[in-house]
Design a binder for these strands. Sequence first.
DNA 1: GCAGCCGATGCAATATAGTTGCATTATGAT
DNA 2: ATCATAATGCAACTATATTGCATCGGCTGC
Lengths: 146, 146
Amino acid sequence: MCKECNYYTILTSSGLEPTENRVRVLEIIGNSSYPLSAMEVLSGIKKTHNINKVTVYRILDLLVENSILERLSTGGRAAHFGLAPNENHVRHPHFYCTRCGRMDCLKPESMTVNISPLEHSFSGAIDRVEIRVDGICKDCLEPVSS
Amino acid sequence: MCKECNYYTILTSSGLEPTENRVRVLEIIGNSSYPLSAMEVLSGIKKTHNINKVTVYRILDLLVENSILERLSTGGRAAHFGLAPNENHVRHPHFYCTRCGRMDCLKPESMTVNISPLEHSFSGAIDRVEIRVDGICKDCLEPVSS
DNA sequence: GCAGCCGATGCAATATAGTTGCATTATGAT
DNA sequence: ATCATAATGCAACTATATTGCATCGGCTGC
């Protein structure tokens, strides 16, 4: 997903200690081509290093608070996490397969959205607009080949 | 939310038994101006009638499957449920207040979305596009008045 | 009427995702 | 080295949702 990002530097430039666990969480999400759930991050790291699930949750919260990661809701139960939009990563919508539960990134240019009517009329504060397309992915549509 | 809807008829015309519990679930969601969580539906009904939470969950699932209700994800943990788009209810985006956790309906015309680029390039099947605006609502922004 | 069936509901137990409190360990400053 | 603070681990817990199985209630055929 991101070859231009130095995860260590991302942390330090946000004023966060670049601990091994934080770098690992950020790496595993940054190197994934689609957003990951907390459990996917946990088991990904556990393949090579010991880490506790609470630590993963706390790091994910911390990175979301610092706008390094973005928390995405799925049609399912678990939130998924991807790199937050920044100069290297344009904000983009996501696709959620209701059959296999996998989440994918869609190209930013796959849709156009104009929220200026809302911005002019809305009396609260707008942080972000999350767009999720639900459906069935290519792999789940295709008949199983033998 | 809907004065044109006869909840009893909505059920029967979908081939579902219009049981008291089903009508009550549908009424409480249909009469709300914003989507409700399963727990809100449960406690709403419990004010006047006995009902089990499992029954509520099962009815919600059933009504979503039959496209009578729509399941909306929030930034929080619990899914919320509102009437599905139909001839009386145009599909519209929702607002989620990250401070108080309340969900609100936004006017359909508050934004314009064009997904035709996606439709032409996407190789899976698209069911629906869910749009959620996250931020802080008017009430939570205002200083508390004494 | 009533025997039998089936869908709807209830209840208890369980699953899943995430959180909290507190103890322990690691890190950096002096 | 000592101390303060931040980060992590562990166990228990909460909230949300689901499953398995028992029971209830209404309808059908007789």
